[in-house]
Amino acid sequence: MKRFSFFSAVSLTLGFAFLYVPMLILIIFSFNESKLVTVWAGFSTKWYVSLLHNEAFLDAAWVTLRVAVFSSTIATVLGTMAAYVLVRQGRFAGRTLFSGMIYAPLVMPEVITGLSLLLLFIAVGVDRGIFTIVLAHTTFSMCYVSVVVSSRLATFDRSVEEAALDLGAEPFDAFRSVTLPIIAPAVISGWLLAFTLSLDDLVIASFTAGPSSTTLPIKIFSSVRLGVSPEINALSTLMIGIVTVGVISVSIMTKRSATRQARDERAAIQG
């Protein structure tokens, strides 16, 4: 029986219109000639040109990119370790506290995370700057990485790992040559998640940034508070474009590698 009714079609259309029309409007009006963002006055790319000459935005973008690369990379290493500990290491003293600390940041309001880290940095006497933002971003995004990686670790067949150990591999070698290739897709998506979380973050960065380390979201937020501007529309369009291309190409890549893997496994079974 066919379940996809007229009602389904309507709710999908309206739902996706709701999700995408606001962004489409943003994109269209980034090409508007006029400074008024709600009245169309002809096609122009001048806001992109002025954006490229805006030193403050370029600096902020560079800070954001560096923070995102460092924090997501460290977070991926720490998060993968944490996932391995949670799924594979069994019981140890303080395990409950450990898993609590992995899950708590996921539900912690950003204002509290930001406030608490700022108070720590001041108590310890660290100068705030790129370094402190990296520490802050690493801490919350390693929890996301660990959740993504541990769900993969929990579902895959442990016997391959045990076989490697039985055949005399050192635990670390077994991890590197057997476990890691299997969980690699999860590790990569964990990294991507950490990277975008860091690119996006406004609240925690506002608390932990110093005066010389303004990130792009902080810069966007402070200019957006004054109202809508076509330059921000242009910047948003660029960011939406990059993310869309990135997400779609990664998903195509993972889909391809999954089909390849499935084919290889079938071939191996048929031998």
Partner: peptide, 21 residues
């Protein structure tokens, strides 16, 4: 994919988009 895609784009930008609307 269409549901997840907005989740990857900046939260701040998605809120900002509504200011003009």
């Amino acid at each position: 994919m269409l549901v997840i895609l907005p989740f990857w784009t900046s939260f701040l930008i998605r809120v900002y988009a509504w200011m003009g609307i």
